[in-house]
Amino acid sequence: MFRRLPDIAGDRVSFTIDGRPAEARSGDSVAAALLANGVAACRNTPVSGAARGPYCMMGVCFDCLVTIDGTGNRQGCQVRVAPGMAVETQDGKREAGR
């Protein structure tokens, strides 16, 4: 789990995780926002169904794949969280059409 240091700059940003309201700071990536909200696991793998969460935070491991505003397989660590953004954890492969 991760917590925010006191005396941190940045505006609060409201978004949702699987439909539940959540809060992040401007400048957070989606992956950072998930970790700050206690969500360590953001998907199940298509191979075995095992839970995975952000691992590298720099766009190389592809373990933080989530659905963002209806588009699947987005790299959570490479997308900045935005007000009103709908983030969904992903079950297995990207769904067809998403």
Binding site: F2, I8, M57
Partner: peptide
Amino acid sequence: PGVLGAGAAQILLKTSGL
């Protein structure tokens, strides 16, 4: 989940103060 690279954790500190 819960296992990350130390570099990843440092990125969380630099970018988000986490």
